[in-house]
Design a binder for these strands. Structure first.
Lengths: 146, 146
DNA sequence: GTAAAATAAATCGTACGCGATTTAATCGCA
DNA sequence: TGCGATTAAATCGCGTACGATTTATTTTAC
């Protein structure tokens, strides 16, 4: 027997949990200067890559549901970053689009991303490999979650 | 130029964020049967490995501060899992200890851990390697966070 | 054509995380 | 010894996440 008791330091899930918290603590003050939270920043990243998505599309991409997204998008709308409009094709669907202000924020956000990238201290190939392993784990776990 | 726009799928921080959410979605219903949340479970894991820690010690181990831990521990105290007592040596310090009920929960929690381990679909050596890489990243980021 | 099923958002309540501040106890040092 | 600085926990407010439910719209099956 090499180990009788396991502690938090042995758990992969705790590694993910605490690393995610650590990254958030790095992002938070940087994004706060732009008036953003981390999930709000993710919404912008998503819309910068392709503008005009429904709440459901954003949810599938980010792994969130309307109970999280609706109030978050409402705040972003009040902040003038996005617009929310019911689709005329299907009134159940809400389309989310960038405002000029939301689009303009992309350049300022570049500095934030660079700052975070630097703090990770990883070479690009290491970073991509780790990222893909973590996405794989996420997808494996998600596929086995009822 | 191989890529003009980056999206959420390119970001290591998003991999961590969404993997952490996915793991939580797996844990949540399992832990709910025991009346626990994930951070509460982490507190128990910590105390099972070594009982009798101060709020500050728990905070350093889990990467949390009293603003998060105090209400969480209060709920665990109300649930009869732990006791909280001011140290007689130093009245500023609060000692957290397991109750019999909290100790007894370790065996039930074993099934939860096994279930999560299985859902990850990783061999032990792969799991340990990934875990350590993520801890390394966490520590690197934390060391560069002002 | 219409009622039931399905789908998309929104709403509500609970429990984190954390920045900022407060309260209380101990320490340091002149 | 005494008093300002430090330390530990608690308190407060805000913004997520999410289970459960509700509301509104569209699809379907007959």
């Amino acid at each position: 027997m090499t180990q009788t008791k396991i502690g938090t330091q042995d758990m992969l899930c705790f590694a993910l949990y605490s690393a995610n918290n650590a990254i958030n603590r790095l992002y938070r003050p940087l994004l706060a200067k732009l008036g953003l939270t981390y999930p709000q920043y993710l919404v912008l990243v998503s819309l910068w890559s392709e503008d005009g998505k429904t709440v459901g599309q954003l949810g599938r991409e980010l792994g969130l549901e309307s109970n999280t997204l609706t109030p978050l998008l409402k705040r972003m709308g009040e902040g003038g970053l996005i617009t929310r409009k019911r689709s005329s094709q299907d009134e159940r669907v809400v389309e989310v689009s960038l405002t000029d202000k939301g689009r303009a924020m992309q350049s300022e956000a570049g500095e934030v991303a660079a700052c975070v990238y630097e703090a990770m201290g990883l070479a690009p190939d290491e970073l991509m490999e780790l990222r893909d392993r973590i996405f794989q784990l996420r997808d494996e776990v998600a596929s086995r979650t009822p």
